[in-house]
């Protein structure tokens, strides 16, 4: 009797499990379609990827990408402002269905959220410098003071590889102030953040003159359990199409972002050879 009960219980648990996994795999996607609205988490403080315009609306390159997703699905779009510290939690808790929020693709993050391949963007190390400094090559930094942020991993690389004298401050604000005061020839930081500064209009006499180094891929994410199901596969297709159609290059232009080598490379790599169709 006990044995029978036990078997029945096991069967029930397994059956329940099968049903729930079959359903759970597409839960979020089904919900989006049912309510006719997709909720996308984007940055609201990272110009020009995601920021608020004068009316308070969130706009930017990633907001446009979110709009593309909604248009393709044929649903309405709702943008939710997320921060680096809470973006993955928002996705896990179901506050957002999709996250496009300047996130670097890393192993530890892949364990928490479903990062969709291919990567849609990359960022790396570059410098912000006065146009009048006339920088063109990393090697020109040799022996010159370069402002940086304390603890940044590329400080060591830039000083070891190119012989720059890193003058590192506690925060970005101090480092940028020191650059403005002319205490260093350049400010070394993440290129996407530098582009954001350039786009802000406060750095009109400045430029980002060097080739970006240590490219670091960005990933957009769906809930972890939906990565290999409809939602993840659909987003994979979206990214693929963004690359091949040149949409990302178009968006970079629209938002005044310097062309990223990765996006150009991906377009060339993923483009379908249609010569046989002639």
């Amino acid at each position: 009797m006990i044995k029978h009960l036990f078997t029945a219980a096991i069967t029930a648990i397994v059956a329940l499990g099968l049903v729930s996994t079959a359903y759970a795999g597409n839960e979020r996607f089904m919900k989006v379609m049912k309510r006719g609205k997709v909720v996308v988490g984007v940055k609201a403080d990272y110009k020009p990827w995601g920021f608020r315009d004068t009316s308070g609306k969130i706009v930017g390159m990633e907001a446009d990408m979110a709009q593309d997703v909604a248009d393709t699905l044929g649903v309405k779009l709702e943008l939710v402002a997320v921060q680096s510290s809470n973006r993955m939690q928002f996705l896990q808790q179901g506050k957002i269905d999709l996250m496009i929020a300047t996130m670097s693709d890393r192993t530890d993050r892949r364990k928490v959220v479903g990062i969709v391949e291919p990567n849609y963007y990359t960022s790396g190390t570059n410098v912000l410098a006065k146009k009048s400094a006339g920088l063109a090559k990393w090697t020109q930094l040799k022996g010159k003071p370069v402002c940086g942020k304390q603890g940044a991993f590329y400080n060591k690389q830039v000083s070891k590889k190119y012989g720059a004298k890193i003058v590192a401050f506690v925060g970005n604000a101090e480092a940028k102030q020191a650059l403005k005061d002319g205490r260093c020839v350049a400010w070394v930081y993440d290129d996407s953040s530098i582009m954001a500064d350039l786009a802000s209009g406060d750095y009109n006499d400045y430029e980002m003159p060097l080739m970006t180094e240590d490219d670091n891929p960005w990933g957009l994410a769906v809930p972890r359990e939906e990565l290999d199901n409809i939602w993840g596969r659909f987003m994979s297709g979206m990214i693929y199409h963004w690359h091949t159609s040149g949409r990302l290059i178009e968006l970079e232009k629209k938002w005044g972002i310097q062309a990223t080598a990765y996006v150009t490379m991906m377009k060339a790599k993923l483009e379908i050879d249609r010569k046989h169709l002639k």
């Binding site: 010159k144 003058v167 101090e174 020191a178 005061d181 002319g182 205490r183 260093c184 350049a186």
Partner: peptide, 29 residues
Amino acid sequence: YFALGTGLERWGLMPVYDAGGWNEPMIGN
């Protein structure tokens, strides 16, 4: 460093020489 030093340079009270893209003030950090 940030207020007085910069101020003195801006008002011309502290000699600064242009070292090619950055300023080398008489009193550094």
